[in-house]
């Protein structure tokens, strides 16, 4: 009875549905799909062979490796520290909690070039605290950690808030230690949130340019990341080289999205049951 009713839609609803579907598709096409298609087109303008050659040029490979490597480090650190931060913000009561909670969003609000400038002033050659990591890979990781800080915190926080505290009490009264409660009860529930946040942080770290361009120094084979490499190629008129590395970055992002989608699918099977 209810099944047949839910299947039937009023004509006006159908029309509105088609309209909004059309709008969504058009919007998505113009904003996302067309530019990506253009990028892929530009990268293979000189043939597939040439594409492979410029994408695997030593400087390009070095830049891609650096970007991926630092992004992995940043993602892992974020997964752990972001979860802990979210935990403290949800579960602990302390003075100034609201202030800390709003400061978390600062990296989102701050233009990334400003973030880069700030970090350069603090940890650069003229560091007032005597820490000079300017133009090193450490500086890259630091800058990326700064701009990606909110991702995991903000994806885990709402899940933790919604978590049924009584399930933890139930586990405790069944004899589970605090560690076991976290591992068996809390973690499986917040894992999708941690994963989402980590992927977002990773993607952001792979693509970041504003916060890095000042502090990394952009030394080829040392501190030149993929995004800056793409920028430099364009500056020197090598459109194909830029597009080739850009497409590789695009593929990495897609692969990450798919991988995490797969993991999410597995860890949330009970929600679809």
């Amino acid at each position: 009875m209810s099944l047949t009713r839910s299947k039937r839609t009023r004509p006006s609803e159908g029309a509105a549905g088609a309209l909004s579907l059309g709008f969504t598709t058009a919007f998505l096409s113009v904003i996302v799909i067309l530019p990506i298609a253009a990028l892929v087109w530009a990268s293979r303008k000189d043939g597939l062979h040439q594409f492979w050659a410029v994408a695997t040029a030593p400087e390009a490979v070095s830049a891609l490796k650096l970007s991926l490597g630092t992004a992995v480090i940043v993602a892992v650190v974020n997964a752990v520290l972001g979860t802990i931060t979210a935990w403290v913000l949800v579960r602990d009561e302390f003075r100034g909690k609201r202030v800390v909670n709003s400061v978390i969003d600062l990296p989102f609000a701050l233009p990334t070039i400003v973030a880069g400038l700030t970090l350069l002033a603090l940890y650069g050659p003229a560091s007032p605290v005597g820490v000079n990591v300017g133009f090193t890979r450490t500086a890259i990781v630091l800058a990326l950690l700064f701009v990606t800080l909110p991702f995991v915190v903000r994806t885990v926080q709402p899940v933790l808030l919604e978590l049924d505290r009584e399930t933890e009490e139930a586990a405790r009264s069944l004899g589970a230690s605090e560690l076991r409660v976290f591992r068996s009860i809390v973690l499986p529930n917040i894992l999708p949130g941690i994963l989402s946040g980590t992927v977002l942080a990773f993607a952001r770290a792979v693509g970041e340019i504003g916060a890095l361009v000042l502090i990394s120094g952009n030394l080829p084979f040392k501190t030149e990341v993929a995004s800056v490499y793409v920028f430099n190629r364009i500056q020197s008129g090598d459109e194909t080289g830029a597009a080739a590395v850009a497409v590789v970055m695009l593929l990495i992002s897609f692969a990450m999205l798919l991988a995490i989608g797969g993991i999410r699918f597995l860890v949330t099977r009970h929600e679809r049951a």
Binding site: D164, E166, A170, I185, P188, N189, V267, H270
Partner: peptide, 9 residues
């Protein structure tokens, strides 16, 4: 518990 506290996963 009143609201079951089921381990949903």
């Amino acid at each position: 518990f009143q609201h079951y506290a089921a381990f949903k996963h």
